[in-house]
């Protein structure tokens, strides 16, 4: 909508947050982004046995403009990364990303020059889903966890505050090469 971002903080906002969260959570449309084996499990989620329609999500949109959830299912090659980013950019706000499976989450067993080591190098990821590939229940579990996240999402000034806190924590964090384990 965009309008909710302009709301002033205060008691009105919390109620609006709840309402908006409830609505958003129940109106997710995924964009198809099946890249490899995980895509087969992603398709299976829409079949009768798992029936993603129960969450109102059975319509995998071909156009990113009509989608607000990207399920990155499969290994992202370096060549695919800009495409993925473009599709993500074309999706309308608000939008979410699930990194489905080990490869999308971290590169998985493909720790090599060809594969992006985690799709979070390209787009912000909301839920990471392990598995190789994850079974359909695991994807549904990830979606339910994402729903929870969306339901409790903050808006407007509260959201800005959280972003600021996260940013500050990230700046203060030690770089990984300075982290000392037991071996130090």
């Amino acid at each position: 909508m965009g309008l909710e971002e302009k709301l002033p903080s205060g008691f009105a906002l919390t109620t609006v947050e709840k309402l908006v969260g409830y609505m958003r959570k129940n109106s997710l449309w995924p964009a198809t982004f099946g890249l490899a084996c995980c895509a087969i499990e992603m398709m299976a989620v829409t079949t009768g046995r798992y029936d993603l329609a129960r969450f109102g999500m059975e319509v995998f949109r071909g156009s990113p403009r009509q989608a607000d959830l990207m399920i990155v299912a499969g290994r992202v090659s370096n060549k695919m990364a800009p495409v993925l980013r473009q599709v993500y950019d074309q999706m309308s706000e608000p939008k979410w990303v699930i990194a489905m499976g080990a490869c999308a989450s971290s590169g998985g067993m493909f720790n090599n020059y060809a594969i992006v080591q985690g799709v979070d190098h390209v787009v912000p990821v909301d839920i990471y889903l392990p598995g190789c590939p994850p079974r359909p229940e695991m994807l549904m579990d990830a979606i339910i966890k994402l729903h929870e996240e969306i339901k409790n999402a903050k808006l407007g000034i509260n959201r800005a505050k959280i972003i600021k806190e996260v940013e500050a924590a990230a700046l203060a964090a030690k770089p990984t090469i300075e982290l000392k384990g037991l071996l130090a």
């Binding site: 989450s105 889903l129 695991m138 966890k145 996240e149």
Partner: peptide, 12 residues
């Protein structure tokens, strides 16, 4: 057990 999804790399 298979319900492992989470929202950060660290938690996984």
């Amino acid at each position: 057990e298979y319900e492992l999804a989470d929202d950060s790399r660290k938690k996984l």
